[in-house]
């Protein structure tokens, strides 16, 4: 009895070994075939590049009309749902009632005292009180959302853009708790019924994942500037923060700029000219 059991275990062991060895052999043989021409994944030649992407928003030139245009451009470019849009009842027959506090926004208007809550005082200059600001993801140098994410679904690219991988996100919303700027939105429901006009160049999202501004990575890759920059009539400028000759560095050098919640040490890449 004992002997046969030992033999059985031996045989089982050998079998397990050979199963384990198969992928290793395969990998070795695959490595050999690499001398033959093989496929390559690459960037487009016209892609816009930077060492560290940054953004300057000129608050002096900003008004409600431009802000509205910017928000709409972003909404269309990224297929962001608008819950005020009346969904097609025939196509989507049993929808749950809309909750507006579950909205999704990437760049939006915020009054000065909310965009900069720490700078609110009793005698805030009249020109700032109630003034609309545009706020979005700050693409921080030290992003707390990236630190918090348990799956690296949100991560920082070498060029400073904080990206979202919707394919990997498990929807734990830890990043939303971690972001000190409230820049992240969660897809509490399927967004499609609430998209009025689809942009075929960008996917929609599925319910249950977090999303936010991606600095138009998909446009930069094609050599186009972000959608908000195009719509902003010169209010928003993007460029390379690490390049002293870039346009945005010149703007920062020659104007008084502030950043949101600098004391937290996340080091935002979005500057506001006051």
């Amino acid at each position: 009895m004992k002997k046969s059991r030992r033999n059985f275990l031996k045989a089982a062991g050998v079998t397990a070994l050979s199963i384990g060895a198969a992928p290793a052999i395969k990998a070795v043989s695959a490595a050999e075939s690499h001398t033959a021409p093989h496929a390559v994944e690459m960037k487009r030649k016209d892609a816009l590049k930077a060492k560290r992407w940054g953004m300057v928003i000129d608050a002096r030139k900003l008004n409600d009309e431009i802000a509205d245009k910017v928000v709409k451009a972003c909404r269309y470019a990224h297929n962001i749902p608008d819950f005020h849009h009346e969904p097609d009842k025939k196509k989507y027959p049993d929808l749950k009632p809309v909750k507006f506090n579950q909205e999704i926004k990437w760049i939006w208007e915020e009054e000065f005292e909310h965009a900069f809550p720490d700078k609110e005082t009793d005698f805030l200059a009249e020109k700032f009180r109630g003034l609309s600001f545009l706020v979005t993801c700050n693409h921080c140098k030290h992003p707390p959302c990236v630190q918090a994410c348990p799956t690296q679904a949100t991560f920082k690219r070498p060029d400073g853009i904080v990206m979202m991988d919707y394919h990997r996100c498990i929807g734990c919303r830890f990043c939303m708790a971690a972001c000190p700027f409230g820049s992240r939105s969660f897809n509490f429901r399927d967004p499609r019924p609430f998209i009025e006009k689809f942009n075929p160049d960008y996917p929609t999202r599925t319910r249950g994942v977090v999303e936010k501004c991606d600095f138009c990575a998909e446009r930069l890759a094609k050599g186009e500037l972000p959608a908000c920059v195009e719509a902003s009539e010169g209010v928003i400028t993007v460029g390379d923060l690490e390049n002293p000759d870039s346009e945005i560095r010149k703007l920062i050098d020659s104007n008084f700029t502030i950043k949101r919640k600098q004391e937290l040490g996340t080091d935002p890449s979005v500057y506001y000219i006051m």
């Binding site: 033959a36 021409p37 496929a39 994944e41 960037k43 487009r44 060029d159």
Partner: peptide, 18 residues
């Protein structure tokens, strides 16, 4: 493979062996 390459490594083009 593509989705990782595009989203995580910012590649956009795929050149086949031929």
């Amino acid at each position: 493979k593509w989705r990782n390459s595009v989203v995580r490594h910012s590649n956009r083009l795929y050149k086949t062996a031929d």
